[in-house]
Nucleic acid binder design. Structure first.
Lengths: 129, 129
DNA sequence: ATGAACCTTCCAGTACAGTGGAAGGTCAAG
DNA sequence: CTTGACCTTCCACTGTACTGGAAGGTTCAT
């Protein structure tokens, strides 16, 4: 399987796959006599794992860690659980921040819906912000 | 007022203020004979506006737009209202995405709390992701 | 006069996850 | 034999909001 086919099979681009290899997410493959990369079927699963990890909000660095542990013959279960727990806490923090921000902006937006341009004093840029 | 004093008055750094000037957020000031920047009191308000805009989740590019409109002698009210409305929609979208992600991760995390390493088949990297 | 604290410019780098493009090699069809 | 689609490497750049550091000039107190 050449890189273009793997890209198509996994819904990504050849550029990205080479970038993943360079980043240590995909192991360097065999090469054909021509120098072309020649991927085994497994590569599809591996790229799929990377995408699922991203969909779970993990960074490529975290995904790389999991992959490394797995390559060392260990099962990365507890590590993955740790990462997921961490991600969960981050998400909760991020969500509350965004909810608070939403509140603030919603109020500003409401205020701005009753424009009184004359009350914009010259020394402020905008009375709504 | 020199740049260090403005930085202290606004709770930022001289580096950041020079960066703001270069980015078109702060107008180039008068210079003293020494070449030092010499800020008027207004600059404090201007930097404050930039910070409030950021706190409202606007990007520097959006803040720059508002500032430009104001500099052209117009009151940026309706523009600001538009930006805030846009920001509100983005926030809502972002929040629902994060809530959905939180759901997914929470389930994965739960699953991973009952580890069954043996059921990790060799062809997957991790049964939880 | 000398040292500290301040200022100047310019260049480069940070994190993140790629993307763009140039210059060239390979392969199959027509 | 050539055309087009594919592949290779390498280098540089994207966007966001700064941050770090070098090399040098200024101001003020001692």
């Amino acid at each position: 399987m050449r890189i273009g086919q793997l890209a198509e099979a996994t819904g990504t681009t050849t550029k990205t796959l080479r970038f993943y290899e360079e980043s240590g997410l995909l192991p360097p493959t065999e090469r054909l006599a021509s120098g072309y990369r020649d991927y085994a079927e497994e590569a599809v699963g591996r790229v799929g794992f990377i995408h699922r990890g991203q969909a779970a909000g993990l960074t490529l660095a975290q995904i790389r860690q999991i992959l490394k542990i797995r390559e060392h013959g260990q099962t990365p279960c507890s590590h993955v659980q740790g990462l997921l727990g961490e991600r969960l806490r981050e998400l909760d923090a991020q969500i509350s921040e965004l909810l608070a921000l939403r509140e603030t902006i919603s109020q500003l937006h409401e205020k701005a819906s009753k424009p009184e341009p004359d009350s914009c004093s010259a020394d402020q840029v905008c009375r709504y912000i």
